[in-house]
């Protein structure tokens, strides 16, 4: 354990990066998932096809490939664009943070698409009819009836998606994100204790997963507070 002295603060900042990636990608993941679900449920054939292609492509490709493609692909594209204006530019890239965040939220968003779609289909048709009978507009029905009913159905699988997001953060270290994996690599070159260093990384991720799992359990309880005796 003595080898860890002096590295705790680096691990702390690395963990903070995991936290930031998690929150940003969580937001994007919900957006991609909702867009995908709405497209899949819409009557528009083109939207349906695009959403299907999205889920098939991102659920079937290895995560690391998507991350590498997002980072190097965007770098090539941006460099080409920059060279149009200034031929002396050699290399432009999106920061690994954003390339990675977008990549993992696209991946997990494709899983969330299916979850949200199922949850929207699981909303009780009687509730929708009741809303119509009360003269609610489509938007009101969506906000006050569909969303509050669907998030409870979606929550357990959604918790798993959040865990995937946390764990996929580790992959972003491959394109040079300065998170705990990266800290461990640096620490190993100095101390020569790879096992100790990577175990700390594992423990940090385990801590994050535990917090997410417990929060989802709490949210599930909160969601059931009004329906507890109904069944």
């Amino acid at each position: 354990m003595a080898a860890l002295n002096g590295w705790w603060d680096d691990y702390f900042w690395g963990a903070l990066v995991i936290f930031q990636v998690f929150f940003c990608s969580l937001g994007f993941m919900i957006i991609f998932g909702l867009l995908g679900a709405i497209a899949k449920l819409s009557a528009n054939k083109l939207a349906h096809k695009v959403a299907n292609a999205y889920t098939v492509a991102f659920r079937g490709t290895p995560e690391i490939l998507v991350i590498l493609l997002m980072y190097f692909g965007s770098a090539i594209f941006l460099t080409a664009v920059a060279q149009l204006f200034n031929p002396e530019v050699k290399f432009v890239d999106i920061p690994p943070f954003w390339a990675g965040t977008i990549a993992i939220s696209l991946i997990v968003g494709s899983y969330a698409t299916e979850t949200f779609r199922g949850a929207f289909l699981g909303v009780n048709p009687g509730s929708i009819e009741a809303a119509k009978a009360l003269g609610m507009s489509d938007i009101q029905t969506f906000v006050y009836i569909r969303i509050p009913e669907m998030w409870r159905i979606a929550l357990p699988p959604f918790g798993n998606h959040m865990l995937s997001l946390i764990k996929d953060t580790a992959l972003i270290s491959i394109i040079g994100l300065n998170e705990t994996m990266f800290v461990a690599k640096q620490a190993i070159t100095v101390t020569g204790k790879p096992f100790t260093m990577y175990i700390v990384v594992g423990a940090i991720y385990l801590g994050f997963s535990t917090v997410v799992t417990l929060s989802v359990m709490g949210l599930e309880k909160f969601g059931e507070r009004t329906t507890a005796g109904v069944k």
Partner: peptide
């Protein structure tokens, strides 16, 4: 299930 597979691979290979 709570830790990334990449970390597990690195612990076994490098650790």
């Amino acid at each position: 299930r709570g830790t990334p597979i990449l970390v597990q691979i690195f612990i076994i290979y490098y650790g």
